[in-house]
Amino acid sequence: MSDIAFFSHAGATLVAETTVGAAPEAESPVFVLIHGIGMGRTVFADLITRLHARTIAIDLPGYGEAPEPRSVLTMERTADLVAAYLHSIDAGRIVLVGHSMGSQVAGEVAARHPELVDRVVFIGPTVDARQRTAVRQLLRLAQDLAVESPRVIVVGAREYLRAGPNLRGKLRAMLAHRPERTYSLVRAPVLVLRGENDYVSSRDWCRIVVASLRQGRLAEVPGHGHETMIRDAAPAAELIAEFAREG
C-alpha cells in the first residue's frame, strides 16, 4: 500500500510516494530515496520491494510526476526543498539514499540539515571532479548502458523522456555543483555503494569520496553498473539494510 503526496515550498514542488513495508517495527528507519538526473521515483520500485521497510520515494521538481519549476533548481535549493518536506512529516529515523545526482542532493541535505538524517547512502555518487564536463559524463553513461540489461535501458529511456525539455539545464545544474566541498560537512555515517562495472562512478572516485567523509565506507555490487538498483536491487538492498541496522 502506498500514498502519494505533492509538496510545495519556495516555488517548487516535489512528489513523495510513501510505501509501508511488511509490518515495520516502531524503531525501524525510514528510507528516503532520491533519484538521479533524468530519472524519477519509479526507478526504485525493485529496491522498495526488497527493503521490506517504510520508504519514501521522491520525484524531484521537473522529474516524474513533479511539475517543472519556473527555473532549474540548484542542488542546494533542491536539498532545502527535500528537507522542508521531511520536516513537515516528522518521519523519525531517516536513512537518506541518493542515486547518482541524487547523491549530490542527499549530501546537501545531510550537511545543511543534519538534524534530519541518521545515515546516508550514496549509490554511484556523481560528479567525479576529474570528469566534470557534459561530454565526459554522457560518454561514461553510454559506456555503462552498453553493458546494462534491456530492463535498465527501457526504464531509463522512459524516465528521460518524462524529464522534459529542460534536461540540458538540469545537467548544467548538476555539473555546477561541487559535492566534494560538502562531504567533509556530513556528520552522519555514509555508505558509498557502487556497481563493480560502473563507468560513471569509478572505484577511484568513490575512494576519494570515502576519504573525504567523516564516517564513510565503500561497498561494491559485483557484476552491476551505474543503475545497480534498477537491474536487480537485491544485492544493493541487502547492503543498505545491513548498514541501516547498525544505527
Rank of each mutant, 00 (worst) to 15 (best):
M101A: 13
G64T: 06
D46I: 00
L51E: 11
R50K: 15
D59G: 12
Y85A: 10
Y85V: 03
V97K: 08
V30W: 01
H35Q: 09
I89R: 10
L51S: 05
Y63W: 08
H52C: 02
A45M: 10
T42D: 14
S88R: 08
R70L: 13
E68P: 10
G92V: 12
A53L: 03
Y63P: 09
R77W: 01
G36L: 11
P67R: 10
P24D: 08
I37T: 15
L60F: 03
G36D: 04
A79Q: 05
S88W: 00
P29Y: 03
V95E: 10
A84F: 05
M75Q: 14
S103W: 04
P24Y: 01
T78Y: 03
V32W: 00
I56F: 08
G36W: 06
A66P: 13
S103G: 15
L86I: 04
S88F: 07
H87N: 04
A83R: 13
P67F: 11
I58C: 06
L86D: 05
P67T: 09
V109C: 04
P29A: 12
A66S: 15
V82E: 04
V95L: 06
H87P: 01
I48L: 03
L81G: 05
S71W: 07
A111W: 09
T78D: 13
S88A: 13
R77N: 14
A79S: 04
L96D: 03
A91Y: 12
R93M: 08
L47V: 10
S103E: 08
I37N: 09
G40S: 15
